[in-house]
Amino acid sequence: MKLTSPETIPDAHEDSIWTASWIPATEDSPPLLLTGSLDETVRLWDPESKNCILKNTGHSLGVVSVAAHPSGRIAASASIDSFIRVFDVVTNNTIATLEAPPSEIWQLKFNPEGKILAAAGGGSASIKLWDTAKWQPITTLSIPRPEGSKPGDKSSNKKFVLSVAWSADGRHIACGSMDGTISVFDVARAKFLHHLEGHCMPVRTLVYSSAPLDSRILFSGSDDGHVHVYDAEGKTMIAAMSGHASWVLSVDASPDGAAIVSGSSDKTVRLWDLKMRAATQIFSNHTDMVWTVAFGPPGRTDVRSCSLASVSDDKSISLYQYS
């Protein structure tokens, strides 16, 4: 398990790159990388040639999240103005513009089947779900208020939802809050299940393991510099890994389930061996905070290898090979 040294696309955007997502390969196209930036554009990249294929404008205020539909044909992007733009990857035609006022929109994730789009609803302390066929809202998964708190209570602010993750089987959804708690929901029943505690600072990133047997395993990264590993169903913490010097901004799990990668505001990207429970590789190629790390789809020639992308405030994209 290791990462090759990165190839970098410098100045991929005009300003900080905040978000990235891999678009699965389609019949006509190899896997592509979608990035969103403070410069209010969303750009599409061919990882092979390192060329920018498309440059979408239309967002105002920085782009905070991009998400790709599993089909590889549709993608969604959201910005600070809390609009979600759903568009056709190839034509860049807008398919839908979504919003859920008064809730703002932070992280976006399509479910594994591609039927639902979930968005972290920030101050509304909830996750918003849309149906991807008609682009109609399905439901809102709200974090229950702690007992005894009044509606006007400020503590609700602490449940501000920043991040969201689907379990590999699509049955569960987890969201991370400003106060460090992680809430787990049953999607089918639209029911809150339980909290996972351990962090006391904002949880900006969550990801379920994508390995077949580990669908309960949830990884979280927090401003406290730790990466936690939970059994999201068993409600237990499996490991706490320290090493980042500052906030953990992004975590992604490798397709083979053996490793995770984290990006941090300490400018490093770390590869963590899950068996060892510690960082085996540390990359310092970025010169500013690393906002997103993302594993790409398995390679065409070698299924055991895949790409990894990291994007940073330094305006660059780095591409690695994981094997």
């Binding site: 105002s60 205020l61 103005d81 809390s82 006022p101 008064p102 809730s103 703002e104 101050g123 509304s124 302390a125 509606p151 006007g152 400020k154 609700s156 602010n157």
Partner: peptide, 23 residues
């Protein structure tokens, strides 16, 4: 004009969300 639209958006989002929670 674009920025003013943004401002309106920001303020009105805030106005709306203040129903939900005090900030």
């Amino acid at each position: 004009i674009a920025e003013l639209r943004n401002a309106v958006r920001v303020f009105s989002l805030m106005a709306a969300s203040s129903n939900l929670h005090v900030h």
